[in-house]
Design a binder for these strands. Structure first.
Lengths: 209, 209, 209, 209
DNA sequence: TATGAATGAGGTTTCATTCAT
DNA sequence: AATGAATGAAACCTCATTCAT
């Protein structure tokens, strides 16, 4: 097994100014990643975009990977925050509202920075990848799984694990694709309504709710 | 607009031996891409894996990108062939069979070489990407769209374009994810059954079929 | 038209040390060009001769051609400086002195670094070539042309343009050849005297001066 | 000293067809050298231009240099032929006619293939260079030198060697430059007249001839 | 004799990273 | 803390040349 390289920030910025520098560097990283693509995102270009010297960049990040990892942490933290709100709402909500809440939350989460999300998903090395980005999917899977178990009596599919897998995959893919390719569909609630019906009819027995 | 670099093969192999060499190089490209990842897939490594000299590689491919493009053409051609079979089956099939056929075909298409498919999807430059890989999705979208229009009277969703988008995205994402992450689910027909029901209930009014 | 590659220096050195490095690299370029010839003057060899790493060389020059172009700019600037001095001397000088001044200036200009001059003249791509090196000849042509017009009444040839062409070509070729092949002839003033008479008798009607 | 590589043709073509092949290859070499420049004149490109395979080219020429050398031999042979005619004419001609003949011959010689001449002069390695191309200048120098000695009593310059150097350099440079840059001047005899007077007045004491 | 596939040394160039200032 | 000059391994790619067919 290859030796893992350090990915943690090199030094904790304590001063106000230093914290701002880190912020500027990460913002520049995101911008360059999205605008120029992963291959063109060299450390020198990022430093230039941030308006700091390459030396300064290496004061805070020991290598290029650590930059991307730090950025992905920030990004997934934001997505997670939105999904966490959902957990609370979901707990005891009736099926249709729960489904809607899941989809809404997924839309919001993917709307944080869809282009950056795409680049990060595609280019983070697998290890780091699972560690952070896939957490979003993984967390969603667990939430859904628990919900299904709690409402087992109303659920059509027998295999709850497979059902959770299908639901999460479907919701994630459709919201992600919509955000990336069909932003026009997000202007009103039609798309959310449709996905809701797609999932709801699959999961739940007919119900007057 | 940035100048596009050439991606077309440099010289058509005329001798038998040369055709074999091209084949060996592309097979090595696929292997290295999958096993080592895009960034580690250097032309020298590919040439070594193919057992030819670096010069031989450049006899047939003008640059690294052209290698990947040629490989993606082969790959998408194979996927397309499987999807094309579907068109015929779909034409006049009743809803449930048509849905099943779509999902089966998608599963088969993604099963061609899922790991390679993932690398190609993630790393092909956008322009080339849309030209070939996305063709698969695009073609599927059109097939489904036509089918929905032909059976409009039985379809629940009003917006057929959105419906086609949701169905294709869902089927593609779930089959792709299953192939990549949950190959255990593909051993029997359970997953296909589930996806079929997911899509069928969404699209079609209840029917004794 | 083929796309021109960049030839301008990549980064303006701001620190003292960097300016010295650029200087060292250009000096090494000249040395290697002269001693080894154009084809053997690889960037690696130049970097080695300069005692810097290949990466340092590419910090300041985006490609090999830009190195040669920068060097030719330096070289022609020096030659031009010497010719510019001539303009002043020539203005109102009587024929014989003017002729002598022209030849002297040409000798001095070609003596700057004759071996380098030869390599540059022979290998610079045409576009760049005309832009800089040929400027020397072009400038000389215009100076002579103006002088001839100003003294038309004493000039034998009718076609002043052709006369200027002949004079400049002759003076340039003879001084250049002398500097390159017959440096012994430059030890005293004999050669300059001879060229002076060659040109003077051709241009001017007999005169007691 | 570096070991000299063979430059002689590898095998004397004996059959009719083989002789034609050699001819085609050399013509292609000249064409590519002139149209594409020395650097772009690769052996593969030359073979392609000649319509033969690279292997065939190497049947007749052991390496690239030998190609260029063979071409330069052909070229200088043609130029020499034109100059040789001059020798006879010159022998006992009176000064003005002799001068004119020299200049005419030089014009003719440089008109053989001026663009090719330029490429060859600039790129042939020095050793080969002096051996063949400079022979033209050298031969001209000797002819002129002999003529001057034979007519010493009418010659103004004392140093006949220097005079011959000046005359040959001047005539060569002006005819060469005219052929390359000012072909319009060659349409009538004006230029030849002017060069003739330039040289004649320099060399010879006034004479009623 | 002719072919063209194959070779690989060696060229140009990039970019993550270090370190003296 | 910040700078930016310097590094060099390693990437991409070319082209003179060989050799099996």
């Amino acid at each position: 097994m290859a030796a893992r390289r350090p990915v943690d920030p090199r030094r904790k910025p304590v001063q106000q100014r230093a914290q701002e520098t880190v912020d500027v560097i990460l913002k520049a990283t995101a911008q360059v990643l999205v605008k120029e693509g992963y291959d063109k995102a060299t450390t020198n270009r990022i430093a230039a975009a941030a308006g700091v010297s390459i030396g300064t960049l290496y004061q805070y990040f020991p290598n290029k990977e650590s930059l991307v990892v730090a950025l992905s942490r920030r990004h997934t933290d934001e997505m997670m925050k939105l999904l966490s709100g959902m957990i609370v709402d979901l707990r005891d909500a009736p099926p249709r509202q729960a489904t809607r809440a899941l989809i809404k939350a997924m839309c919001d989460a993917h709307a944080v920075d869809p282009a950056l999300h795409k680049v990060l998903v595609e280019h983070l090395p697998q290890a780091t990848f699972f560690e952070r980005i896939h957490d979003v999917g993984h967390k969603a899977h667990q939430i859904v799984r628990h919900y299904l178990e709690a409402h087992r009596e109303r659920i059509i599919p027998q295999d709850l694990d497979m059902a959770a897998f299908l639901v999460v995959t479907t919701v994630e893919a459709t919201t992600h694709a919509a955000v990336l390719q069909r932003q026009d569909m997000l202007l009103n609630d039609d798309l959310v309504d449709q996905i809701t019906r797609l999932v709801h009819q699959y999961l739940f027995v007919a119900d007057p709710s």
